[in-house]
Simulated assay, not measured.
Amino acid sequence: MSTEFLEKTYLTTHDLAIGTFSFYEHVVVGQVREGMQICMDNILPLLALSWEAYRNTSVVYISDRKYSYSLDPTMYYEVKKLAPHITGYAWVVYNEINRKIAELEARFVHCPNAIYPTIDNALQWAVNLLQNEGEN
């Protein structure tokens, strides 16, 4: 599922100070660099790119948590105001610690969200979410 979807819908990749973000039609897959401390100041470039690419459409963000980093989860309230086009948020986690962190963060995300062990699972969820949104 993921390889075919990603190949068909790929738009561009942005290598930013905080990580690498691949933009697809209606999906962004982000991988934040090891040890980063995420704050509003350092995600503003990503939000600006997201606004340019998706402001008139829905997008699901998939956080590929391959590396450990920190953030203040209350930041999600501000992100929602600046990026209302984000209609879903998924975490891909590779260990129990990151699962627990994602569960905590999920409490602050006010859109459909889910936690998965693989990119394939997260992409399938994102596609289903987007399809269901289009039916409503």
Rank of each mutant, 00 (worst) to 15 (best):
L49T: 01
E34C: 07
E25A: 13
P45M: 09
V28W: 02
W51I: 01
T57M: 14
V27N: 03
A53H: 10
F21H: 12
S58Q: 12
V59F: 09
I38A: 02
S58I: 02
S22G: 09
T20Y: 01
V59M: 13
M40G: 11
E34F: 10
S50R: 11
Q31A: 07
E52T: 12
E52W: 08
V60E: 09
W51K: 14
S58T: 07
T20W: 01
L47G: 01
L46H: 06
I43A: 00
N56D: 15
V27I: 15
L44Q: 13
Y61A: 08
V28T: 11
M36I: 08
I43G: 00
R33Q: 13
T57I: 07
M40V: 08
D41W: 03
V27W: 01
Y24V: 12
T57P: 01
L44C: 04
V59T: 12
L46T: 08
I43P: 00
L47H: 00
L46F: 14
Y61S: 05
E34W: 06
R33C: 11
Y24C: 08
F21D: 03
S22K: 12
L46Q: 05
I43H: 00
V29E: 10
S58G: 03
A53W: 06
T20C: 09
V60Q: 08
N56C: 10
R55L: 05
V59Q: 11
T57Q: 15
R55S: 12
H26P: 00
D41E: 15
F23K: 11
L46M: 10
S58Y: 12
V28D: 02
L46K: 04
H26N: 15
S58E: 14
A48T: 08
L44G: 01
N42T: 12
S50Y: 10
Q37Y: 02
I62L: 08
L44R: 14
F21I: 11
A53Q: 12
T20M: 08
L46P: 02
R55H: 14
D41I: 05
M36R: 14
N42E: 09
E25L: 12
A48N: 07
R55Y: 09
A48G: 02
I62P: 03
Y61D: 06
E25C: 06
N42A: 11
E52N: 10
N56P: 01
S22L: 05
A48Q: 08
L49Y: 03
Q37D: 09
P45A: 05
L46E: 04
I62Y: 02
L47S: 00
I38Q: 03
V59L: 06
V29R: 08
R55Q: 10
L47K: 00
Q37I: 04
L47M: 10
F21M: 12
M40Q: 13
I43N: 00
S50N: 11
I38D: 01
V28Y: 01
V59C: 15
L49R: 04
V27E: 07
H26E: 14
F23Y: 14
L44M: 13
F21N: 07
M36E: 15
W51G: 06
V32Y: 02
T20F: 01
E52K: 14
G35E: 02
F21A: 12
V29F: 05
A48I: 06
V28P: 00
M36W: 01
G35F: 10
V60M: 06
M40S: 14
S22W: 02
N42G: 14
